[in-house]
């Protein structure tokens, strides 16, 4: 039922105020273009909302509503209920989007309610691994070792110490039929998952890894490269969970050591100085565990280019 992709007119129009190299707005554009025009979208407070909807302008070429930071899933449930009650359920697919903070922290309760009640809603979490809109504070999806404004490295700290919350597993535990992890580093894979998700009736969840040049402190030309490195190091494996079981894992040609991913990012710079070997080893161990779980090839030894 979706209209074919019109390359000349992405459904998120240019002219928004996202930073150069913003992974989040790119991810949103890819998702929406895969979904097509026949959608109603609701978004949480956060960078994506702010950069695309300054009155009197809007980048959204589809019907879109922003309410608050933590209620996106509930607003989506209301939209879906209204479409049903009005006999308009064939008119549009309902999509909710939120950042990692909106999804895994403050909006987790509303999300859980929406999932548990089985609304026909696709929830997309754009994971840039911190509260970027308020100036880079940690969220429960901030990875171990990362520097944020509220997990600063200091004389007694190496940055974030709590491992990233396993949101896909939490969502799957609600009995959600389709859960997928995707990345802007792999656009076709992302769009394939979007389409697959939208073909499923009931709640579905897509978590998209979206590098943030400002918050992670990397060169704006590296967004895609870093997104790919996160996958290649097994720090951010891409997979699908259908009815709770892993059905697909995105294959990587060779697995890279985590330093490859950490090195270009200012948020991990303190880990690459002498003295941080233990912390670095911990991050490699997290990647190794992922690699084992998702069947990655053994670690390639690469020559580090200076």
């Amino acid at each position: 039922m979706n209209t074919p992709l019109d390359r000349a007119e992405p459904l998120i129009a240019p002219g928004h105020s996202a930073c150069v190299g913003c992974g989040e707005v790119l991810g949103a554009r890819l998702c929406l273009d895969a979904a097509g025009k026949d959608v109603i979208v609701t978004g949480a407070t956060g960078c994506l909302e702010i950069t695309t909807s300054r009155y009197p302008e809007s980048s959204w070429r589809v019907p879109w509503i922003h309410s608050l930071f933590e209620n996106t899933a509930a607003v989506a449930a209301g939209i879906e209920a209204a479409l049903k009650a009005l006999g308009r359920q064939d008119e549009a697919k309902v999509i909710a989007h939120g950042g990692d903070g909106a999804t895994a922290d403050i909006g987790l309760q509303a999300l859980s309610g929406m999932l548990e009640r089985g609304h026909d809603v696709l929830y997309i979490c754009f994971d840039n691994e911190a509260y970027m809109n308020t100036g880079v504070q940690r969220s429960s999806l901030t990875p171990v070792g990362a520097r944020t404004m509220t997990t600063p490295p200091g004389r007694q700290s190496w940055g974030e110490v709590i491992p990233k919350k396993n949101m896909p597993a939490i969502v799957a535990a609600h009995g959600v039929p389709y859960v997928a992890v995707a990345s802007v580093g792999y656009p076709q894979d992302l769009q394939k998952k979007m389409k697959k998700a939208l073909a499923v009736r009931g709640p579905k969840y897509l978590q998209v890894h979206v590098p943030c040049p400002l918050g992670w402190a990397f060169d704006t030309s590296l967004t895609i490269k870093l997104a790919q490195l996160a996958v290649q190091t097994a720090l951010y494996p891409l997979y699908e969970l259908e009815n709770g079981t892993v059905t697909e894992v995105r294959k990587v040609g060779r697995r890279l050591p985590v330093e490859e991913y950490l090195k270009p990012q200012g948020r991990f710079r303190h880990l690459l100085r002498p003295g941080a070997e233990k912390e670095l080893a911990l991050i490699q161990a997290l990647a190794d565990a992922n690699a084992q779980r998702f069947g990655y090839p053994p670690l390639s030894s690469v020559t580090v280019n200076k």
């Binding site: 509503i65 209301g78 209204a82 309760q109 509303a110 309610g113």
Partner: peptide, 28 residues
């Protein structure tokens, strides 16, 4: 009564469901 009755997990969500539904053109 032919209403969609949404049994939410909090009042925050109850009001938010009404918000989303009203924005879609429903009486709530």
């Amino acid at each position: 009564l032919a209403s969609e009755f949404v049994n939410v997990e909090s009042e925050h969500s109850a009001a938010s469901v009404c918000l989303g539904a009203a924005a879609t053109g429903a009486r709530t």
